[in-house]
Design a protein around this nucleic acid. Structure first.
Length: 571
RNA sequence: GGGCCUGUAGCUCAAUUGGUUAGAGCAGAGCGCUCAUAACGCUUUGGUUGGGGGUUCGAGUCCCUCCGGGCCUACCA
């Protein structure tokens, strides 16, 4: 029994996320959270929307809404979709929460008190037409290197040369197209991460077993060029956490907000506060997860994220926590993921290419997506979504191997013995061998889940399902029924127990089907800490219900129709 | 340009970190079963581990080089 704090990278607010986003953070985090709870650990699983920054302001403007209203509405949308995918967050918060405002300002104050924040003057491009400063990538113009006329202020996408906005020929606002731009002087706060470089490196070096993806990105940032760079943590925007030094004003910083990447990770902590408030708990109830002086010293903290998020979670956020000088809990394990590609290219929000969470749930129930995405999680390299593979995977694994097993067992029993767990018959060495095999496979499954090896865990779970079919085929209760009905009863009894066992084991991956299996067997979907005992769990004579088929198959023509529909262009 | 990751059967992936004959699933072929969603089970075809060179008793694994794919490169998040 341990205490495990789990956070998923918080999804940005400006629209519905696609399946690539989902499989890179929220879905594996949910898998692990569900597993940890099933094993009896105390879990706090948190996620939230990431609401600040320029893209949120622009998306709200495009929707013709005040940004606060837009975010509130999009939070509702994302919450509903999270529920649809059965993401079991203990709380789904918002980075715009009052709790996060206070905490972000608190951290800034602590960092300033510790000499880790510096005010710097810099020159940035201001658009008079848009009435705002423009981040580099929101400035377009002609590339001085290759002549491409839609180069961005940070980099030319055509020749990949890195640019400064002032390098562009005929620069214009990417938002309005206006060329009425000027360079203005503005002051910003910088977090002096460079001073924490050695502390951060020591901390990274102490970690064992982190994915190569995680540590290599962290080391690259620590050692690249002049080493870890200081980072501006404020912006000239309206929407965000107002810059304050703790609970005091910050002279010279009026009208500015903290940079979204400064306040977003802090929301992991603030979200625990939101959770406590929502549950009518006290401050100490969330602090025991986050403060090592208040109970968090024995918490294991695991983060899930896509690879693009790694620098902020390995460096910036730890710098914030370490630099505060306060005993905040640092992450113990960072599980990072590569990208899921769609039919050979990138999922693209702007081009409407790929499948988005709302669309996915219109096509098929959550379990189909959860199973396929998790069993193909991009752990070692980018992995590809194709409709052919998706169809083959869900049809074979879910409908044929698992669904059909439940169907053949329950329907055979119903037709020969009725809808009750049959009594009588001796347990044979064949049965004992199955129990031993399942026990061994469950141990392997648990090892993979403990190590957060998602694909290996999925493969092992599938193997456990397959073992049921192998057993049934070899034991052949339909043959035994004619010569030795008692033996057939024993085989069927064990097989029905397998269905109940599968419910508990499968629940982290496919929670709805697991519930259906458990309900049919008249039990709760519990984790089999003792497999042998679990396989004798159903009392002879107990009633069960033959469930509807757990999974339908994806037909070739609907696969083709979906492929055509989601080929892109139709945003 | 620099850095990181990656390349294994037609496809998707393993391979206990240098150790026997490189393994699974899917797809293909054959057989079996008839309880079941034409499902299940058994058997089986299929590999010069991207090419070349090197180190080693031994290389998918380490080194060099070439070729291909991907990502990151710090003011998008």
């Amino acid at each position: 029994m341990a205490r495990i704090l789990i956070t998923s990278a918080i999804p940005y607010i400006n629209g519905i996320k696609h399946l690539g986003n989902l499989v890179g953070s929220q879905l594996p985090a949910d898998l692990y959270a569900r597993y940890a709870r099933a094993r009896g650990h105390e879990v706090l699983f948190l996620c939230a929307t990431d609401e600040h920054g320029t893209p949120a302001e622009l998306a709200a403007a495009k929707a013709g809404m005040p940004v606060a209203d837009y975010c509130a509405e999009m939070w509702q949308v994302q919450k509903r979709l999270s529920d649809g995918f059965r993401l079991s967050f203990d709380h789904f918060g918002r980075s715009s929460s009052p709790q996060n405002h206070r905490l972000t300002q608190h951290f800034a104050g602590r960092l300033a008190d510790n000499g880790l924040i510096e005010e710097r003057s810099e020159r940035q491009v201001y658009s008079n037409a848009d009435g705002r400063f423009l981040p580099d990538r929101y400035i377009e113009g002609t590339c001085p290197n290759c002549g491409y006329d839609r180069a961005r202020g940070d980099q030319c996408e055509n020749c990949t040369k890195q640019l400064d906005p002032t390098d562009l020929i005929e620069p214009r606002s990417a938002i309005s197209g206006s060329t009425d731009l000027e360079v203005r002087e503005t002051k910003h706060l910088y977090l002096l991460q460079s001073r924490l470089r050695d502390d951060l490196r020591d901390w990274i070096d102490r970690q064992e077993g982190w994915p190569v993806l995680t540590t290599s990105i962290a080391r690259k940032w620590l050692d690249d060029g002049d080493g870890l760079q200081d980072r501006g943590i404020t912006r000239d925007l309206d929407w965000g956490v107002p810059v304050r030094r703790g609970d005091r004003d910050w002279p010279g910083m009026e009208g500015k907000v903290f940079y979204v990447w400064f306040d977003a990770p802090i929301e992991y902590i603030a979200c625990a506060g939101e959770w406590a408030d929502a549950q009518e708990l006290s401050q100490s109830d969330w602090e025991r997860w986050w403060r090592t002086d208040k109970g968090a010293e024995n918490v294991r903290y695991v983060q899930f994220m896509g690879k693009d998020n790694v620098p902020f979670h390995t460096l910036s956020f730890p710098a914030t926590l370490l630099g505060s000088g306060e005993p905040w809990k640092l992450v113990d394990y960072i599980k990072s993921f590569n990208y899921l590609t769609y039919d050979g290219g990138q999922f693209s929000t702007s081009q409407g290419r790929g499948i988005f969470m709302d669309q996915a749930l219109e096509l098929l129930p959550a379990d189909y997506w959860r199973w396929w995405l998790l069993s193909h999680a991009p752990e070692t390299s980018d992995s590809a979504f194709t409709w052919e593979a998706f169809q083959a995977g869900v049809n074979k694994d879910l409908a044929d191997v698992l669904g059909n097993f439940v169907s053949r067992v329950t329907k055979f029993c119903r037709s020969r013995f009725g809808e009750v767990v049959p009594e009588g018959g001796e347990e044979t060495p064949e049965d004992a061998a199955l129990i031993a095999e399942i026990s061994q496979k469950v141990a392997a499954y648990q090892d993979h889940m403990d190590a957060i090896q998602v694909r290996k865990a999925a493969a092992e779970l599938r193997g456990i399902w397959v073992a049921g079919n192998e057993y049934l085929q070899a034991a052949a209760p339909w043959a035994a029924f004619k010569s030795d009905p008692a033996r057939a009863a024993a085989i069927v009894r064990l097989s029905l127990n397998l269905v109940a066992l599968y419910a508990g084991l499968s629940r982290p991956f496919i929670p709805d089907a697991a519930e259906a299996m458990a309900e049919a067997m008249g039990v709760a979907p519990e984790w089999p800490e003792d497999v042998a005992a679990a396989l004798h769990r159903l009392p002879p004579g107990a009633a069960f219900r033959t469930p509807d088929n757990l999974f339908r198959k994806v037909a070739d023509d609907e696969r083709d129709a979906w492929q055509a529909r989601f080929s892109g262009g139709a945003a």
